[in-house]
Simulated assay, not measured.
Amino acid sequence: MNDDQSRKRLGRGLAALLGEIDKNPDEAAVQPDGQVPLDAIAHNKRNPRRSFSEDDLDNLARSIQQHGLVQPIVVRPLVGHTQRYEIIAGERRWRAAQKAGLAQVPVILRDVNDRTALELAIVENVQRSDLNPVEEALGYQQLIEDHNYTQADLGQVIGKSRSYVANTLRLLKLPDIVRDMLVDGQLSAGHARALITVQDPVALAQRIVEEGLSVRQAEAIAQGTAEEGETEPAEKAPKPEKDADTRALEKLLADVIGLKVAINHKPKGGELRIGYKSLEQLDDLCRRLKG
């Protein structure tokens, strides 16, 4: 099976491979393949998830003590060992089961290779929103570097747009201190994306946290449309009014593409600006420009 066929299979057969583990706990529980000793299960060193809240684990452990482990842990045979298993998905449940004092846990056994195990771990965590943005980006980078995935391939597998994957990967360009704030939850992914293009992302990140700025406010500052002590309207020279022909052409183009259009004439040539409000609008424009 070539890489392309494998990726398509993963996209179509994810629920089957994972045993539909993304079901809500209130829905019918998936039938596990059996019970195995908890100490026969090892964590996956390639698991993209690195952060586990102790409070979250304690809460889950109490729930497990009361109701049992509702969702089985997805495992694969541990290479070179007999009756030993490595986690594909469910490390949080495994850690909580240890806290709850369980001796055995239900598992779903899948015999898959390293690449598929990593793919499944990433997809399962993305579906559950269990990864912080940095962990998600590192997982995508690992698939790209280790298994020759393109951004478009990843988008298809995880059910996201290519631009979503690209913007998530761009978070890895941020300074370590900003990435730490992102991991700690002080910044959201939206805040972080606004920081990527600014000259001093650390200073703006600290300002976002200190002032409790929204993503929209952070984006406005990053784009230079809002500054402290704003007196810009009085200080800026008025823009020359556009002639009727230019305004008519802007309206014509805007009607055709469905986005705001601005035409600015200069002594030599000029520029055409197209504004978009979302990455989906940008994707749509790119598809239309490609014919």
Rank of each mutant, 00 (worst) to 15 (best):
P48D: 10
Q5I: 15
H43A: 15
R84M: 12
N113W: 10
E280G: 13
T82M: 14
V105C: 07
I196S: 00
E86T: 07
N59Q: 13
I177Y: 01
A28T: 15
H191I: 02
P32D: 13
A166V: 08
Q217Y: 05
P238I: 11
L195Y: 00
D33G: 14
L154N: 02
S214Y: 08
N24M: 14
P201A: 05
L138F: 07
E54W: 15
D22A: 14
R46H: 13
A28F: 15
D55V: 10
K268M: 13
L195D: 00
G190S: 12
M1V: 07
A103Q: 10
P133K: 01
D146F: 15
E86Q: 07
Q35V: 15
I73Y: 03
E145C: 06
N47A: 13
R288K: 09
L60G: 05
V198E: 00
T197V: 15
S163R: 06
N132D: 03
E280I: 12
S188A: 14
D255A: 13
L252Q: 09
T82G: 08
Q83S: 14
K268H: 10
S6P: 04
E232P: 04
G68R: 09
N2C: 12
A16E: 10
A137R: 00
L195P: 00
I41D: 02
A15D: 13
W94H: 05
I73G: 01
R179D: 00
N59C: 10
G155S: 06
D26S: 14
E136S: 05
E135M: 03
G159Y: 11
Q199A: 14
R50V: 15
D153C: 07
